[in-house]
Every structure is written in C-alpha cells, then in structure tokens.
Computed example of a mutant assay.
Amino acid sequence: MGRAAALLFAREGARVVGCDVNEAGCQSTIAAIRNTGGDAAALQPCDPSEQEQAQALIDFAIESHGHIDVLYNNAASVHFAPIEDMTLEMWRGTMKGELDIVFNVCKAAWHHLKKRGGSIINCGSVSGKIAYEVLPALAHSAGKGGVIAMTHQLAMEGGKHGIRVNSISPGLVRTGATSALIDNPEWFEPMKRKLMLNGQVGTPEDIAYCALYLASDESKWVTGADFAIDGGTTAW
C-alpha cells in the first residue's frame, strides 16, 4: 500500500520522500517513480518505530525540500496471536510497530507542519473497530484503535495551526502479506461474508486514492475523520 501511494502521489506531482526497512523494495519503488519522470528519494534502511530514525527521516525531508506538506503514516509491523499465545514481547512489539511508529514521525514533523499547515494521514484498520472471526488480532486491534484515537486528538491540537489529521481504515486488501491467506478458502470464506461487493477484496490503489484525496486541497474542510475503505465490512 505504501508503494501504491508513493507511485500515485508522484504521478500527481508530489515530491515523495519515503523510507523502508527493505532496501531492495525501496529502491524498486524509487526507480519506478523516477522512470516515469517523478521526483522521489528515500532514507533506507529506516525504521520509524525507533525515535532517532523517525527524526532522521524528517530531517532528510526538510534538508531535501525545506518543508513538509503531507505526512502519510503507512508503515507498521504487527504480531498476530490469540491472548493465550500472545507474549508480552509480541504485545509490546506490536505497540511499537503500530503506535510508536506514528507518534515518532508526527512528533518529529509537528513543528515543521505548524509553520504552514499541512495534512497528516494515518493508517488505521477495520480491526481497530471490529473483530474478525479468523484473525487473532488482539494486539493489532489495540494498536490500530489507538491510531484512530490519536488521529482525533492530533486533529484537535493541530486545527489552530492549519494542520488537518485524518485516518484511513482499510479492510481486507490483497498484498504480498495477505495473498496466501486470501487464496486459502477455509480462511477467506468468513472474511468474504463481510465484504458487501460480492466478496471482492481491496487493492492497494483503492487505499492510495483515499490518501490522495486527504492530501489534496479538495479535502480542506476534512479533519478528525476516519475513512473506512473496506468494501462495506464495517457497515454491517
């Protein structure tokens, strides 16, 4: 989903600054953007769940372009397990990979955004609002629910500075991490029943287009909102 957003933003004229812990994947995305005439650079390897690395990412963006207009917090890492099997290390790792990672980057970018306003887009999840029968998402649900709640608070604190803050809560999206599960009928069937559009799963581009809207001036009166891009999953 991060790659899809980077490609779409660049195609619309954004100067993209990204990061990744996967250097090969990051280089591939940068090359894809530059090959079509886009402007992109990245800090790699970079793990924004570490405060120093999040600060380095924002410093890199400021050094490259002088300011930040849009901050898209898409990166995350997570452990899935039911409570009986969820260790404290797994729990804390998920909180670091889903909550700390958003806090660190927002904290590092905040004083830059205060100077001229801007848009922060956080990636929540339907798991922050509902439970799935076949997804042992205890830590993930807590982490993404926290992201949605943080978004509301940041929107309130940022409004007087012209900073808009919204979140996107994707449903089941086909990615490299989910394809094997989606192709497993035993796992997918309960998930499919929650998808209103004939069981159709989402694509990374479906999420990226919502992020593009929230980054644009077309959403200038939108803040503190969570957008469910989930094929109707949370509507019933």
Rank of each mutant, 00 (worst) to 15 (best):
C46D: 04
E50H: 15
E189L: 12
V21G: 00
A149P: 00
W91C: 05
I62S: 07
E52S: 14
T178P: 09
I207E: 07
L43N: 13
K144I: 08
C106P: 01
A31G: 00
H140D: 09
G231M: 04
D226S: 11
R116D: 09
W187A: 12
I101L: 10
G25D: 03
K194M: 13
R116F: 06
L88C: 12
L57W: 10
V78C: 11
G202R: 08
M90Y: 07
V17N: 00
S28G: 08
A54F: 05
T175R: 08
G176H: 09
T87F: 11
Q200N: 09
H65F: 15
D69S: 01
A24N: 01
E189V: 06
D20I: 02
S169I: 07
R15N: 00
A139E: 01
H152Q: 15
V78G: 13
T178W: 14
W221M: 11
D206A: 02
L197R: 14
Q44I: 15
H111P: 00
D230E: 10
N122T: 07
L181H: 15
D47L: 12
A42K: 02
L8Y: 11
P82L: 12
A215D: 07
S77D: 13
V147H: 03
F227M: 05
W91K: 06
K160W: 02
P45R: 09
V21R: 05
R15M: 01
N22H: 05
S125I: 05
G199I: 09
A177D: 15
